[in-house]
Computed example of a mutant assay.
Amino acid sequence: MKMSHPISQANENSPYGDLTLEEFYKKHQIIHEESFMLNKRKMKLFTQTWRPEYCANNNHLHHQQFKGLVAMVHGYTADSSWISELTAVAIAKLGFLVCALDLQGHGQSDGYPGHIPNIQHVVQDCTQFFDSVKSQKPKLPSLLYGESLGGAICILISLQQKYGWDGLILNGSMCGISSTFKPTRPLEKLLPVDALFAPTWKVVVTKPVASKSFKEEWKRRLVAKNPNRRSSGKPPAATELEFLRVCKYIRMHCHELEVPLIILHGEDDVVCDPEAATFVYESAASKDKTLKILPGMWHMLIGETGENVELVFGTIFSWIQERAVKDFLRTISSFI
C-alpha cells in the first residue's frame, strides 16, 4: 500500500496545512485520544493514542481488527505532537494502534525543560504507559519506533523487555553523539562536576541542533513555531553527561539485541553518529535486521525533501506492515 506522508500537506506555519487539527483528523479518518498519567515520581506526563476510525469502538473490537501496536518515542527537544504526530497518523492509517507520550521536560509533561538527568526514569515512564496500552490489546504484534534520543530509549526498552516487543525501528537514533556536537574535551572532563553542582546549568557549548537536523528550511521554521517547544536544544550539564553515558551503555550492550530491527540513518548526520548506528547493526544478535545509511541525508529524515521523505517512510511503513503480518501468521500457526 503506497501512501504519502502527511508532512507533504504541511506548511511552515502548521503541520496540518490550512486545516484545523479537528479537520486534519477527519480528513485522515483518525480517532485521537489524549490524557495525562502520573509516573512513579508523581510527575504528570502527557500521553496520546491514534487509531483508524474503523477501529474506534473499543467495546466490540477483536485484536485482529488492528494489524498491530506501534509505540513511538520522540527525540530531544521534540514532543509527541506537531511534526511527530504526522508520522503517528500515517502509521495509524495503515491499520495500527499508535501510542506516544511527551518525555519529562518536553511538550506538555512536567519537568525542567530539556532536563533528563537519569535515562532510566524515562525508560520507566515509557514502559509504564506502553504496558498499559498493550494490556488492552495483549495479542497484538507490538513494535517500538524511536527517533534520535527516542531511538536510544527504544533500544534500552528492548534490552530490558527482551521478549516484549516484535520489532524495533530506529530513525536517526542516538547510538553515538557526533564529535561535532560533543562538548570539547576540557568541558567533557568537567561534566561530572558540573552535573553534580549545577545539573541544570547549560554550560555545554553546542551548535543549534535544528539548523543541522532539518535540511529543508521551511521545516526548521515549522519546528520553531511548535507551541509546545520548551528547549532551545542545548542540554543542561547533567543531561549531556547522561547522554554520553547512554551511548557508552548502548555500545557495550547492543550485542544483546535479538528483536527484529531496522535502522535508517542519514549519511551526513552531524548530530548522531551514523558509524555508531552501523556498529549497533553489526553487533545486534537479531536474525532479522536491516541497515540503511542514506547518502546525503541529515539527522531528521522527515526534514528531507519530499522525494526523500517518501523513500524513507515508505521503507519504514512497508517494514512495519511486513513484521506485523509475520507475527500474526506465527501466532496463528502456533494454534494449528
Score class of each variant (00 low, 15 high):
1 M>N: 06
2 K>Q: 13
5 H>Q: 04
7 I>R: 00
9 Q>K: 07
12 E>P: 15
12 E>S: 14
19 L>A: 04
19 L>Y: 10
25 Y>I: 03
30 I>S: 08
31 I>K: 14
33 E>H: 15
39 N>V: 13
41 R>K: 14
47 T>S: 11
47 T>N: 06
48 Q>I: 08
50 W>N: 00
50 W>A: 00
53 E>K: 05
62 H>G: 09
67 K>D: 10
67 K>M: 10
72 M>Q: 12
73 V>E: 05
75 G>T: 02
78 A>F: 14
80 S>G: 10
81 S>V: 09
82 W>H: 10
83 I>C: 03
84 S>P: 13
87 T>D: 10
88 A>W: 05
90 A>Q: 04
91 I>G: 02
93 K>G: 02
94 L>G: 07
98 V>F: 01
102 D>Y: 11
104 Q>L: 08
106 H>Q: 13
106 H>S: 15
107 G>C: 09
108 Q>A: 11
112 Y>E: 13
116 I>E: 10
122 V>K: 03
136 Q>V: 07
136 Q>H: 09
142 S>R: 06
143 L>T: 11
145 Y>H: 08
147 E>I: 04
149 L>N: 03
157 I>G: 00
159 L>W: 01
161 Q>E: 15
161 Q>V: 05
163 Y>A: 11
166 D>E: 14
169 I>Y: 07
169 I>K: 01
170 L>H: 00
171 N>H: 12
177 I>L: 15
177 I>M: 12
180 T>A: 13
186 P>W: 09
189 K>V: 14
190 L>F: 13
190 L>R: 11
195 A>K: 01
199 P>L: 13
199 P>H: 04
200 T>R: 12
202 K>Q: 15
206 T>P: 00
207 K>L: 12
210 A>D: 09
213 S>T: 07
214 F>T: 04
214 F>I: 14
215 K>S: 08
215 K>V: 06
219 K>C: 00
220 R>W: 00
223 V>D: 06
223 V>I: 14
226 N>I: 09
226 N>D: 12
226 N>P: 03
231 S>R: 03
231 S>T: 15
234 K>W: 10
237 A>R: 04
241 L>K: 06
246 V>S: 02
247 C>I: 07
248 K>G: 13
248 K>A: 08
249 Y>Q: 13
251 R>N: 15
253 H>M: 11
257 L>W: 01
259 V>L: 06
270 V>S: 15
274 P>M: 07
274 P>K: 06
275 E>V: 07
278 T>M: 12
282 E>C: 05
285 A>E: 12
291 L>D: 05
301 L>V: 13
304 E>F: 06
307 E>Y: 06
307 E>K: 12
308 N>V: 09
312 V>E: 00
313 F>W: 06
314 G>R: 01
315 T>Q: 05
317 F>N: 08
320 I>M: 12
326 K>V: 11
326 K>T: 12
333 S>D: 15
